[in-house]
């Protein structure tokens, strides 16, 4: 005997609570007299229960979420650099095709290298050849901001370690890590001062 026509989609919708009140009531009425649908609803409910449980077990740890913003801005900055580089490559390819010969090839290879370095160190092409991409410039600024926050966090952690555990080795390695991160900023001097105080035993916590 063929199964009741409602034991398919309707039973699923009922088990998944997707029926509107106007649909739900007559279906419940129907359930009272239909074994097919009663069995189907029970079975679909089990499916949903099992999958709900299995999915609820998957959790994203807080720690993993911490760096998402930073990585998004890094990704934006990398895409920006790539755009610049591909434009440089394209313009040099055009230039190179005007001349032939290995010397020109070597010269243009060197030129590419030089321009690449210049690009990565400072925005050489900001003004003319490449129109500015405002969103990615601010991404670069944002990365810098995150770096500064990270430096400060490491400093705080170093001081907290010192204060709570008085672990000179750990404090020192944290301060060195902070100093490394702070390369090229005023924070380096701050790190040095703290390291000196730590070594002379005069490091105080804020």
């Amino acid at each position: 005997m063929p199964k009741c026509i409602k034991s398919g989609g309707q039973a699923i919708d009922y088990a998944a609570k997707l029926l509107s009140p106007e649909e739900e009531e007559p279906f419940e009425e129907h359930l009272k007299n239909c074994l097919d649908c009663t069995e189907a609803v029970q079975s679909f409910r089990t499916v949903l229960q099992l999958t709900d449980q299995a999915q609820a077990e998957l959790r994203v740890p807080e720690l993993a979420l911490q760096d998402i913003e930073m990585n998004v801005y890094k990704r934006l900055a990398a895409a920006h650099e790539q755009t610049l580089l591909s434009r440089v490559r394209a313009s040099i390819a055009n230039f190179g095709s005007l001349f032939r010969g290995p010397r020109i090839a070597i010269a243009s290879a060197i030129a590419i290298a030089l321009i690449t370095v210049a690009l990565l160190m400072g925005n050489l092409f900001r003004s003319e050849s490449v129109p500015p991409l405002p969103e990615t410039y601010s991404a670069v600024a944002r990365i810098e901001q995150y770096r500064q926050q990270d430096i400060q966090r490491n400093l705080e952690e170093a001081l907290i370690t010192h204060h709570l555990r008085n672990d000179a080795w750990d404090t020192e390695s944290r301060l060195y890590r902070m100093k490394e991160q702070a390369d090229g900023t005023n924070w380096m001097a701050v790190a040095d001062a703290h390291l000196q105080n730590l070594q002379s035993g005069t490091l105080d916590t804020p």
């Binding site: 398919g8 989609g9 699923i12 919708d13 088990a15 998944a16 079975s43 679909f44 089990t46 499916v47 949903l48 099992l50 999958t51």
Partner: peptide, 17 residues
């Protein structure tokens, strides 16, 4: 969407039952 959802639940039923 409903068709996909129904197929999904039925497939899971076939696999898990």
């Amino acid at each position: 969407v409903k068709i996909h959802l129904h197929r999904a639940v039925k497939r899971l039923q076939t696999l898990l039952r």
